[in-house]
């Protein structure tokens, strides 16, 4: 193979993304058009990058947590809390810098709470983070006092809807955070240590890795990413909607990580894969909206596409592909290997 390992690792995801974009182009003429208007690029592709921002941001943190064999169900609720904190602070005349710093701080504190439950009390991650998932939305509602807290601060609105060089600011945010996280974890030993915890926490501990500190750190990172996503979501609609902000997005984030080729068993991770996974999910969402089907079909179509992607990626299919590749060509009719995976999917 001539492709570098990093690209080869996410090749199936790139292919899936490309196929879905091609489908979208077939369904909606003008899908690929990009215009420049009102100081920003404008088009369905840009929408995908922009609308996928919250899930992409959540997926960065989620990837790290899942790499340690954990899971963070609280990110949607943390988004709601972050949005509520940001809206409450900015409407009570705090400066933009103070508001954003405090909101990010709240996100980190939420993450540390999850991390402490997992690292020090040994509670299973799915239960530990379930606590904040349930309680968090209540906390957000307490902060907003049950109403949609609206604001007009240009700085906070910019985070959700602004553009730099024509590129929507949320897109810049998730790309930058994705790259920063990749560099931090892949150019140092951090990534390896996180993977070691996922493979065997006890063995890692015995080998001298500070597992508790690392666990705290990855959950805090997840909380931080959720807080950024919360500010983006609130800025987008100029208000904090405690009931609906980030609702069910934790599931989309987990799905993005899995579609990105990561295993929920932990032990290895690819942030780039998760980000592509987030874009795949958003491409499906946007495609469904553009297609103009009745809304009753939305979830069914989405589920069907995701199932196909997961089946193609599944270990069983991978083995099958590898097996067919290794077989000498001459023995087999040329069409047969193409049909095999379809049969697999139908089963």
């Amino acid at each position: 193979m001539t492709l570098p390992t990093t690209i080869r690792r996410v090749l199936p995801q790139l292919v899936a993304l490309f196929v879905i974009l091609a489908l979208n182009t077939a369904i909606a003429p003008g899908f690929l058009d990009i215009a420049f208007a009102n100081g920003r690029f404008y088009g369905s592709l840009i929408d995908i990058l922009n609308r996928g921002a919250p899930v992409a941001l959540l997926a960065v943190g989620m990837t790290l947590v899942i790499a340690t064999k954990g899971i963070d169900l609280s990110v949607g609720a943390v988004m709601a809390i972050a949005g509520a904190v940001a809206a409450a602070l900015i409407t009570s005349d705090h400066s933009l810098a103070a508001t954003i710093l405090a909101t990010l701080g709240v996100g980190i504190v939420c993450g540390l709470w999850n991390g402490a439950l997992v690292a020090f009390l040994g509670i299973q991650p799915i239960i530990a983070t379930l606590i904040l998932m349930v309680a968090g939305r209540g906390i957000a509602q307490l902060i907003t006092e049950g109403v949609i807290l609206t604001f007009n601060d240009p700085g906070l609105v910019f985070v959700g809807t602004g553009a730099v060089f024509g590129i929507p600011f949320p897109v810049i945010l998730w790309v930058a955070i994705g790259i920063a996280a990749s560099v931090l974890f892949r150019t140092t030993a951090l990534g390896l240590l996180v993977e070691a915890i996922g493979i065997n926490r006890r063995a890692s501990s015995l080998a001298g890795i500070g597992t508790s500190a690392l666990l705290l750190a990855v959950y805090a990172a997840s909380g931080l990413c959720a807080a950024v996503a919360g500010i983006v979501a609130a800025g987008d609609i100029r208000g904090a909607d405690a009931n609906n902000a980030g609702l069910w997005l934790e599931l989309d984030a987990i799905l993005a990580v899995v579609v990105g080729g990561n295993s929920l068993m932990g032990g290895r991770f690819s942030i780039a894969g998760s980000l592509i996974g987030a874009m795949i999910i958003q491409s499906v969402n946007t495609g469904i909206l553009l297609a103009g089907f009745p809304p009753e079909f939305n979830l069914v179509i989405k589920a069907a596409i995701i199932v196909v992607i997961l089946v193609v990626q599944s270990p069983a299919s991978q083995t099958l592909f590898a097996f067919m590749k290794s077989r000498p060509r001459s023995e087999e009719d040329a069409a047969a290997p193409v049909r095999e995976p379809e049969k697999e999917a139908a089963r």
């Binding site: 949609i148 979501a233 987008d236 609609i237 208000g239 909607d241 609906n244 902000a245 609702l247 909206l289 103009g292 009745p294 809304p295 939305n298």
Partner: peptide, 10 residues
């Protein structure tokens, strides 16, 4: 065109 917006702003 008719599509669901789930009663939410986002």
């Amino acid at each position: 065109r008719s599509q669901t917006g789930d009663f939410t702003r986002t």
